[in-house]
């Protein structure tokens, strides 16, 4: 009788865990949105999975960004997949890139924008009462909107310097039709995170930074 009670309790816990997984565990999800690409680089590269059911783990090496790189700009496009059964928001935070020398590479020297919000496929939810909003100032392709500032340094409408803490870059209504426990290739949306870096007379050195993209419950907008 006592053993039966314990077994029943354990089974109940496991059932609750399974329920929690199917109801909440995949309610918000961020993943790769496809193959990342890089152009204009000298000795640079980008690695990441082309599979939209893979985790978002991308490594970008911009390569040489002194004037030795004679290309006008280094552009990296990182497709990101998102899924939800509820309104959502995507935030980005940055660590690193804290050069004390103002002539060295700064966060503001890396253009950062969001473009091309699109359905992954037929299982993505099309809402008619709310739109997916790319938050200001990130709705641009920094590689084609770079300008020269009064100091002669390249400026972008938005850059990694625009990030302050966990900064909301995107929000909107429900993304997925179904409530699958597993990622599917068509059950959400993808957008492009675009990074742009113009080779300049930066002070020499190696710089690095990490961007963390997070999806969480967003403003309660109707679908």
């Amino acid at each position: 009788m006592r053993l039966q009670h314990v077994t029943f309790s354990l089974t109940a816990v496991l059932l609750f865990m399974a329920f929690a997984q199917s109801t909440f565990g995949q309610a918000l999800d961020i993943s790769s949105g496809g193959q990342p690409t890089i152009t204009g680089t000298l000795n640079g590269s980008v690695t990441g999975s082309a599979n939209v059911t893979s985790d978002l783990v991308v490594t970008v090496n911009f390569g040489e960004v002194s004037p030795l790189n004679t290309n006008s700009i280094v552009k990296v496009t990182v497709p990101i997949g998102v899924r939800s059964n509820q309104p959502y928001q995507v935030t980005v935070s940055i660590t690193g890139l804290n050069n004390a020398n103002v002539e060295a590479l700064q966060a503001s020297d890396v253009g950062f924008g969001i473009r091309n919000m699109r359905l992954l496929g037929g299982a993505g939810k099309v809402c008619t009462q709310s739109s997916h909003l790319i938050r200001s100032p990130f709705d641009n392709d920094p590689a084609i909107s770079a300008t020269i500032g009064s100091s002669g340094r390249v400026a972008y409408p938005s850059s990694l310097g625009s990030l302050s803490g966990a900064t909301v870059i995107l929000s909107g209504p429900q993304l997925s039709k179904n409530n699958s426990a597993n990622r599917q290739t068509s059950d959400g949306y993808a957008f492009d995170a675009i990074l742009a870096l113009t080779p300049q007379f930066f002070a020499s050195g190696v710089s690095s930074a990490t961007l963390i993209f997070t999806i969480s419950p967003g403003p309660n907008v109707p679908c």
């Binding site: 496991l14 059932l15 865990m17 399974a18 997984q21 199917s22 565990g25 995949q26 918000l28 999800d29 961020i30 993943s31 790769s32 000795n43 640079g44 059911t53 893979s54 985790d55 978002l56 783990v57 991308v58 490594t59 970008v60 090496n61 911009f62 390569g63 040489e64 960004v65 002194s66 004037p67 030795l68 990182v78 990101i80 899924r83 060295a104 590479l105 890396v110 426990a181 597993n182 990622r183 995170a193 990074l195 870096l197 007379f201 930066f202 002070a203 020499s204 050195g205 190696v206 710089s207 690095s208 930074a209 990490t210 961007l211 963390i212 993209f213 997070t214 999806i215 969480s216």
Partner: peptide, 27 residues
């Protein structure tokens, strides 16, 4: 119990990372 544990192995996540580096050589 086996069936119940499987969903937690689906690999879904609420975060992703993009790690970056760049080099500036003397010029």
């Amino acid at each position: 119990s086996t069936k119940l544990i499987l969903p937690s192995m689906s690999g879904q996540s609420t975060t992703g990372t993009v790690t970056m580096s760049a080099t500036v050589s003397k010029f």
